[in-house]
Computed example of a mutant assay.
Amino acid sequence: MFKSVLQAACLSLALAAGAPAFAQQVVKVGSTPTSVPFTFLDTKTNTIQGVMVDIITEIGKDAGFQVQVEPMQFSSLIAALTSKKIDVISAAMFITPARKEVISFSEPVYTYGEGLIVPKSDTKDYAGFDDLKGEAVGAQVGTAFVEPLKKAGLFSEVKIYDTIPDIMRDVNAGRLKAGFADYPVVAYSLKQGQFPQARLVESYKSTMLGSVGIGTRKDDQELLAKINASLAKLKANGTIDKILAKWGLKAS
């Protein structure tokens, strides 16, 4: 009988020791399907892929949590986070003072500015906002580019679009004079041969620089600390630079 009790006790200890492996935390990550190369829908696998998916996946491996990517529109990310539909935002989202009032951000992951796209038939070398005075321009809803464009007071209209491809589609078709959007997203799309009648204005100088960060709820500081610790490690060992290079981005 003693032997049976001992075997049962050993079995209980073994199961307890193995429990953490089966109880690994699942973190729901909000990402967008239309911001290639940061986050986009891979139609072959029907999954969200890209820079920010690779980064949060590697962070999860290091920090000990499993990543479950939830696709959604950019404009709904923060609401989904604060309502606890997701636990983390990992997308092409700038860290801004207004957003920091609502959610917390990791240390910066990547820094870049806006790109200017115009129809290929428009060969003018635009340098800044002033060169487009009186024209209608476009930007994506919920991005950090919308307010500066409106506050400039130079444009006849700032049209708001749901996605960056929507902006590029109108520019490509000649329905929009110019569009402002994330430089890496636009550059990557054009490099892939999409929107052949649109071009990126190389003479234009970005004025709305920002840094992409990973978002968490303000009351989830433990998760944020884990993300920051792993992010620092992945920056130091070159993993982040390798991911950026994989998607055609230079280290910032």
Rank of each mutant, 00 (worst) to 15 (best):
G142R: 04
T143N: 05
A144I: 04
A144F: 00
A144P: 04
F145Q: 05
V146Q: 08
V146K: 06
V146E: 10
E147I: 10
P148H: 11
P148E: 11
L149P: 03
L149R: 08
L149W: 09
K150D: 02
K150V: 08
K150L: 05
K150H: 02
K151G: 05
K151I: 08
K151P: 04
A152V: 06
G153H: 11
L154Q: 15
L154I: 13
L154S: 12
L154E: 12
S156M: 02
S156N: 07
V158N: 04
V158H: 01
V158S: 05
V158F: 03
K159T: 13
I160K: 13
Y161V: 03
Y161N: 02
Y161M: 05
D162N: 14
T163N: 05
I164D: 15
P165H: 02
P165Y: 00
P165E: 02
P165K: 02
P165M: 01
P165D: 01
D166S: 14
I167D: 03
M168A: 14
M168V: 08
R169Y: 11
V171D: 01
V171M: 02
V171S: 00
V171T: 01
A173E: 13
G174C: 07
L176S: 04
L176A: 06
L176P: 00
K177A: 15
G179Q: 00
G179P: 01
F180E: 07
A181C: 04
Y183H: 07
Y183K: 05
P184V: 01
P184H: 00
V185S: 14
V185W: 03
V186T: 11
A187Q: 13
Y188G: 00
S189H: 06
S189R: 11
S189Y: 04
S189D: 12
L190E: 07
K191Q: 15
Q192E: 14
G193H: 10
G193N: 10
Q194M: 15
F195Q: 02
P196N: 03
Q197E: 15
Q197G: 08
R199G: 11
R199W: 08
L200I: 12
L200Q: 12
V201P: 07
V201H: 09
V201I: 14
E202R: 10
E202C: 01
E202G: 02
E202K: 13
E202I: 01
S203C: 09
S203W: 08
S203N: 10
K205Q: 15
K205V: 14
K205P: 04
S206T: 12
S206W: 04
T207R: 13
M208Y: 06
M208F: 08
L209D: 14
G210S: 06
S211H: 01
S211N: 03
S211Q: 04
T216G: 05
R217G: 05
R217C: 06
D219Y: 09
D220V: 06
D220Y: 06
Q221R: 10
Q221S: 12
E222N: 13
E222P: 00
L223T: 13
L223C: 12
L223D: 13
L224N: 09
L224D: 04
A225I: 09
A225P: 07
K226G: 00
K226T: 01
